[in-house]
Nucleic acid binder design. Structure first.
Length: 693
RNA sequence: GGACUCGUAGCUCAGUUGGUUAGAGCGUCUCGUUUACACCGAGGAGGUCAGAGGUUCGAGUCCUCUCGAGUCCACCA
């Protein structure tokens, strides 16, 4: 045996070997329960980041269950990640002096598609580099045609069941570019603008936007504000520039009693906070600014003015009527600007698709309460329940191109909608008019990813869904428990009638060595692939598991990486010692007589029990700790040392323990263990071994 | 503002349902150049488990409060 372990050679050699021999493909055995994990699909737009290395937990579970003899499937895929991908792509366009508005919808979509396809092989090779036992023959993408079909049909089912409705929701709209923008695209800047103190009947309120007052449908104060408590729930008479009006006063926590006078006007159609307040108190939404950036006829004589002109005109008129108490000209606040043209972003109400989520949420709560789904660590159940109990209807429309287009057609004649399972209708379902246009919007990315467990299995091999669904474990970061995991439960239950997975396993975040979140803007991103090159994939895997309890965050630790690299070296050298002994000299007497042999075999037995128990509870860090301690301090330091005095007699035990250790360690360190296992000349892969009991 | 997590040896973190002298890795100190390994071995030092109070025969582990760190949500993915 070589003096040192060459991890690079081993990593490439064995992954190819496993893949070529189809070891990652499960053998379907009817009647036998399979073990199934669907890989949380990484965003297809970028290489893997450190968060993705936590997939190692899934790999350990998959490899462990394969050794136990379960037909085990780990299904890979990629997510189109709507907003984020389009945003990243536009940054590339900007570098070339272009923007998304230079292209037609279809062209833009195709360009992003190509951009994403270019990245996908990189991602694939990275997942391989880390040794992940993924069944590549079942690889899926959220925009695969067959997946899209399923997403469409789920939407249709919801629509037919009356779970889908249209409602207005505010979007960031640039009236100059004539389009809406995602939050990522809005640039917030500090601006100085006059703060007007305006008389509203008995009250005085402060606002920077007097021109939107025609859209006011309420006045809000803090519910505990003693000054105004008596007005809450009452309707007050106010004098306005357009004459007398009546308006309701509501109490809402959102109001800051210390700001201005502690009274704000509520304009649900033109302010995000006001929209929230309006929703809570059932206030009407009255649009006064149009998509052309001008006031509409609700503004009376101010109609057709631009927002800026109207503001001045309204203030002048108010001054004349004595409605302006004072003007604070020093007021500074953050204002949203269009990242492209620097215009002020106008929050405007746009009709969008919503899903009535409460009935689905109730079933998702029950699934966990009754134990059909278990959450590890259990403490996350609280968050899960809290989210589902307070859930609000799900807005699934997105005003972007990169995504699955919503299969709904609007009729210009009867204003009705025709929703299909994807097919293009030739006429309106309601009035048979041919004048129909498909909705421009695409689905929220989470709407498709919420269907991932069944959408994937329904579109791989025939019979897959019936055999592998419900899946066994959904393992992912706790940060997307609500956005993704809870929604998978809801939509999965709704569409298939079954839970999408039986266990939810949540891991924590990987932060930089100083405990800070890794992010591009901080510039503290560490490439996991570089570390895998330096320390070896096995060591990186172990370092991620060692010493971090499930669900807890960890800071990347170089000492830990070193320790695990040293551990690989230790095992390599134990093997060198054990296998370096000429086998012909060994007494093949398997009867254990010596107390040392008995001791180490007992210890091994105990280790197996503990590791097995810890794996069953998803306590991987404890399993790793047990193995580390056994291998280094019991096997190497004690048994191997003492065996030197009676080498021939100890040889069978040395070999036996080493081989068992390799099998136990294989889920954690697949490359090293395969490399060493091969030295036993057993002419098979360690992946075909049995988990010792 | 709401919720959650964390605060245990110099550093990074473990410590299942409360139960004997609180553990690991790294670092540190002493010794050791024994042919598996210096990416090593033998041994040692180091903690009033953030603070205060409470429940209990017994608390790092449960409850309350205080202080500190971080994350999520409140707008969005």
């Amino acid at each position: 045996m070589q003096k040192t372990y060459d991890q690079k050679v081993a990593e490439e050699k064995w992954y190819k070997f496993w893949e070529v021999n189809n070891f990652f493909k499960p053998q379907i055995v009817k009647g036998e329960k399979p073990f199934v994990i669907i890989l949380p699909p990484p965003n297809a737009n970028a290489p893997l980041h450190f968060g993705h290395t936590m997939y190692v937990i899934e790999d350990v579970l998959i490899r462990y269950h394969r050794l136990l003899g379960f037909p085990s499937l780990w299904l890979p895929g990629a997510d189109h990640a709507g907003f984020e991908t389009q945003f990243v792509f536009e940054k590339h366009l900007t570098k070339e002096g272009k923007s998304r508005f230079d292209y037609k919808r279809e062209t833009l979509y195709k360009m992003i598609w190509d951009f994403v396809q270019k990245n996908r092989p990189i991602m694939g090779s990275q997942l391989r580099k880390l040794g992940f036992a993924l069944d590549w023959s079942r690889n899926k993408f959220t925009l695969d045609e067959d997946i899209v079909k399923i997403v469409h049909s789920s939407f249709k089912k919801m629509y037919d069941d009356g779970l889908v409705y249209r409602a207005k929701r505010l979007v960031n709209y640039c009236t100059r570019d004539g389009t809406s923008f995602s939050d990522l695209e809005v640039v917030y800047k500090e601006r100085q603008s006059p703060l007007y103190f305006i008389k509203y009947g008995p009250l005085t309120l402060a606002t920077t936007r007097p021109e939107t007052k025609f859209g006011d449908t309420g006045v809000a104060v803090h519910p505990k504000d003693k000054r105004y408590k008596k007005y809450i729930g009452k309707t007050i008479e106010i004098e306005t520039v357009l004459g007398k009006a009546a308006i309701k006063v509501v109490g809402d926590e959102l109001v800051d009693p210390d700001f201005g006078t502690g009274v704000i006007k509520v304009t649900p159609a033109h302010d995000f906070d006001d929209f929230e307040i309006g929703q809570r108190h059932g206030l009407e939404m009255k649009q006064v600014i149009g998509f052309d950036g001008r006031l509409n006829k609700a503004a009376g004589k101010f109609a057709h003015m631009t927002v800026a002109d109207a503001r001045q005109a309204v203030v002048e008129e108010m001054k004349k009527k004595g409605l302006v108490e004072k003007i604070d000209t020093d007021y500074k606040h953050r204002i949203g600007l269009c990242y492209k043209c620097d215009s002020v972003i106008e929050p405007l109400p746009l009709e969008q698709w919503f899903i009535k989520i409460e009935p689905l949420a109730k079933k998702a709560i029950t699934a966990v309460k009754t134990g059909k789904i278990k959450i590890f660590p259990k403490s996350f159940e609280k968050i899960y329940f809290l989210f589902l109990k307070n859930i609000r209807d799900w807005n699934i429309s997105r005003q972007i191109v990169w995504g699955i287009r919503i299969p709904a057609w609007f009729c210009l004649d009867c204003s009705g909608w025709t929703v299909t399972g994807g097919a293009n209708p030739d006429s309106c379902q309601r009035c048979q008019s041919k004048k129909i246009n498909q909705d421009e919007d695409t689905f929220d990315t989470w709407f498709s990813s919420a269907q991932w467990p069944f959408a994937t299995l329904k579109t791989t091999s025939p019979g897959d869904f019936e055999y592998f669904y419900p899946t066994t474990v959904m393992e992912t970061g706790y940060d997307i428990l609500r956005w993704w995991v809870a929604r998978m439960v809801m939509v999965g239950l709704y569409v298939t009638g079954k839970v999408p997975f039986e266990n939810i396993v949540l891991h924590g975040l990987v932060k930089d060595p100083y405990g800070k979140k890794m992010s591009k803007s901080r510039g503290n991103i560490i490439d996991p692939m570089e570390l895998a090159d330096e320390y070896g994939a096995d060591a990186v895997r172990m370092a991620l598991l060692f010493g971090t309890a499930l669900g807890n965050d960890q800071s990347l630790s170089y000492p830990k990486l070193q320790a695990m690299r040293n551990f690989t070296n230790k095992i390599w050298n134990i093997a060198r010692f054990v296998l370096g002994f000429a086998p012909k000299d060994a007494k093949r007497d398997l009867k254990v007589k010596h107390k040392d042999d008995k001791w180490i075999r007992d210890e091994l037995e105990r280790l197996i029990v503990r590791v097995t128990n810890n794996l069953e509870r998803y306590e991987l860090h404890l399993a790793v700790d047990e193995i580390y301690d056994f291998v280094w301090h019991k096997f190497a330091d004690k048994y191997v040392e003492k065996s030197k005095e009676r080498r021939a007699e100890a040889q069978p035990t040395l070999e036996y323990v080493l081989r068992s250790v390799l099998v136990i360690l294989h889920p954690f360190m697949p490359f090293l263990t395969e490399e060493l296992y091969q030295k036993f000349d057993l002419e098979k892969s360690i992946m075909l071994e049995k988990w010792p009991t």
